[in-house]
């Protein structure tokens, strides 16, 4: 069983809008898979489909060899999926510590909490300093650390990380990418990123989305970067 997650021909509607038009992809265990593409291409919807927030009308999602497409969200997540949403969505009225408490699942065994916290503080040493602070008062970079930490308080097999560097300064973005790089040894990662150059050193595999379809896939990031025509057509990098 090499693939931790598999999506087979998923068709997803949001209301009456036909968003994902037959997506098939795999996320191999222990690797980082990138979802690339422009705004509105369907990357975030794919993540929400995995989470069961937008269940597919056709096709299926298989996690650890088990179909999860028709399960309610909390049951899917409890199988070992951590989610770092775009725009962070931390709970601003709670403190950082309370954010982590809320995110800790009941089913996780109590004894490894310290281990998880050690990992979090190892990746983000600064977080120790603002544990008691109300999360709404944190800076953008601190909020992003918290959003990632929230997915790490449970021992997850798969991390879904959506646009982690959005709105961060280049230095903060670089630090975060380094942290994610170190996370590779603990979990499989599915990463959405518009600015693919910043994450190119992380990715093992990639899928390029356009208008709800996968238009290109591969496993060699340097080949992708070299393919100027492909980059210009689907990733719209104008630099």
């Amino acid at each position: 069983m090499n693939n931790l997650l598999e999506i087979q021909d998923a068709h997803v509607y949001i209301g009456s809008f036909y968003i994902l038009q037959g997506i098939s992809m795999v996320v191999p265990k222990g690797e980082v898979t990138l979802l690339l593409g422009r705004n509105g291409a369907g990357k975030t919807t794919t993540m929400k489909t995995i989470l069961g927030l937008y269940p597919p009308r056709e096709g299926k999602v298989v996690f650890k060899g088990e179909e999860i497409s028709n399960l309610p969200t909390h049951k899917i997540v409890n199988k070992g999926i951590g989610y770092v949403p775009d725009t962070r969505r931390i709970f601003g009225t709670l403190t950082v510590e309370q954010n982590l408490t809320v995110s800790r699942r009941k089913s996780s065994s109590r004894d490894d909490l310290q281990e998880r916290l050690d990992l979090i503080f190892d990746l983000f040493p600064d977080m120790k300093g603002f544990l008691k602070q109300r999360a709404g008062t944190l800076s953008g970079g601190q909020q992003q650390m918290l959003a990632v930490a929230r997915a790490l308080v449970n021992d997850n097999d798969l991390l879904l990380i959506d646009e982690p560097t959005e709105g961060l300064s280049p230095l903060l973005a670089k630090n975060l990418i380094n942290a994610l790089d170190r996370l590779k040894e603990f979990a499989t990662i599915l990463l959405v990123e518009q600015n693919f150059r910043t994450v190119s050193k992380l990715g093992d595999n990639y899928y390029i989305f356009d208008s709800g379809k996968i238009v290109h896939e591969g496993n060699n990031m340097s080949e992708l970067i070299a393919d100027k025509a492909l980059v210009a057509q689907y990733l719209g990098v104008s630099i």
């Binding site: 927030l53 909390h74 997540v77 989610y83 949403p85 709970f91 009225t93 408490t101 809320v102 995110s103």
Partner: peptide
């Protein structure tokens, strides 16, 4: 609401119930 897990979940849910669900709570 400050100290219990369920109290915190309710408070967090008032802010963003979908996110609470996506973190593994049975929101229903």
């Amino acid at each position: 609401f400050r100290k219990t897990r369920i109290g915190l979940q309710i408070q967090a849910g008032i802010e963003d119930s979908e996110m609470v669900e996506a973190l593994g709570t049975d929101i229903r």
